[in-house]
């Protein structure tokens, strides 16, 4: 199990181009879909807590999942798995050629990579919407969730409120409305 945690995040670490929320679809695929370590809803809660913690969201998610599964050792191994690939690649690049990002080849690769990662996040958004009851039967509950979704998106896009505050405000709304 510990080895599984390490290997899973090690593999994700190697392809986690983009950082941030771009890694969510990858972690979701491994943790929920392949390993079944948590349900889609539990995974959503993990992202919420990771999003409220300081530091990079993807690494935070790995630490939380590792801790959730196997305690402190699990957290350490998940974090290590996630950051070791970056360390290895940076050491390799640093040793060889450090202006590598200027090369045509790398730019071409990112031209394709960005589109794929956008597609993966769009897919993740659809999946999360389905799993968290935003597109279920027509009811007041579904309607209220869609309203919270819409207002949150508006707060982020239009008013540029920091995600941490949006999550906290949403939680307060939840306690009032559903509590």
């Amino acid at each position: 199990m510990l080895w599984d945690l390490f290997i899973t995040f090690f593999m994700i670490g190697f392809v986690s181009f983009g950082g941030g929320y771009a890694m969510i679809p990858l972690i979701q695929e491994e943790i929920v879909h392949n390993h079944g370590w948590m349900t889609a809803q539990e995974f959503t809660d993990v992202i919420a807590v990771a999003g409220m913690s300081p530091g990079p969201i993807a690494t935070n998610t790995a630490i939380f999942i590792g801790y959730n599964q196997m305690g402190l050792t699990g957290a350490v191994l998940s974090a290590l798995g996630m950051i070791l690939p970056s360390l290895m690649i940076i050491l390799a690049i640093g040793a060889i050629f450090y202006k590598i990002q200027k090369s045509m080849m790398v730019k071409s690769a990112f031209y394709g990579l960005r589109s794929i990662i956008t597609g993966l996040i769009v897919y993740a958004a659809i999946l999360f919407a389905v799993n968290n009851g935003l597109v279920s039967s027509i009811s007041w509950h579904t309607f209220s969730l869609i309203l919270i979704f819409g207002l949150s998106l508006l707060a982020l896009l239009r008013y540029r409120i920091h995600p941490v505050y949006v999550i906290v405000m949403s939680g307060l709304v939840g306690v009032t409305v559903y509590g």
């Binding site: 996040i121 958004a125 979704f149 999550i167 949403s170």
Partner: peptide, 23 residues
């Protein structure tokens, strides 16, 4: 639990927001 019912909808918004920005 009540807080997280709403927060889950917000996380969907955050991921959508990330998709728009990266897009």
């Amino acid at each position: 639990e009540a807080a997280f019912v709403a927060i889950r909808a917000t996380i969907v918004a955050l991921i959508t927001y990330a998709a728009i920005k990266i897009g």
